[in-house]
Amino acid sequence: MSVLPDDWALPALNARNEQWFTSGSIAVQRCIACSTRQHPPEEICHRCGASAFDHDVLAPTGTVFSYTVAHYAVNRALADSVPYAVVLVSLDEDPAVRVVGNLPGVPCDAIRIGMEVEAYWEERTAEDGAAIRLPQWRVR
C-alpha cells in the first residue's frame, strides 16, 4: 500500500545508507570510535570527526513526533496522490533518532502527534534493479 506512485523517487544507495534501505531493519548509523548514533547517516561523525561506521539495529517502534498533510501536489506526478501525510517518527529506543515516513493505514485527518507506531518495509525495485526495502509506519 504505497502512498505515492510506484515510480516515484526511491533512495539512491551508497555505503552509508545501504543498510538502512536494504536490511528491513531500523539500522541506525553508529560511529565505531565514539558510539554516537546519527540519522540520517553522515560521512563524518558529528561528535568526534571519525569516518568509520557500523550500525545499531533498534526496535522498530516509535511515536509520531510531527507530521504534515500535503494537499497541494508539488509535482504533477503526485496529483492523484494528494492529500497524503508525511510523519516524523521519534524512535522509542532512542528518541533523538527521528525518521521520516508515511502512515498509509491512518486517514490523514486522524493522524495525531504522539500516536504509537511501528515500522514495516515496502519492497521496491529501482530502475537499475536494486532491491530497496523502504521503511514505512503503521499504528501498533
Binding site: 502512498v3 505515492l4 515510480d7 516515484w8 523517487a9 526511491l10 533512495p11 539512491a12 545508507n17 534501505f21 540519522h39 540520517p40 500535503a70 497541494y72 508539488v74 509535482n75 506526478a77 503526485l78 496522490s81 497524503y84 508525511v86 525518521v99 521520516v100 515516513g101 508515511n102 529501482a126 530502475e127 523502504l134
Partner: peptide, 22 residues
C-alpha cells in the same frame, strides 16, 4: 512551490523525497 521529479533521491533527500516530503 514545486519540486522536480527524480527517480533516485540522493544525500539527505534519500530519507525524505521517497515519502513526498519535497
Amino acid at each position: 512551490g514545486q519540486a522536480g521529479r527524480v527517480r533516485r533521491a540522493r544525500g539527505a533527500g534519500a530519507f525524505t523525497a521517497p515519502y513526498g516530503m519535497l
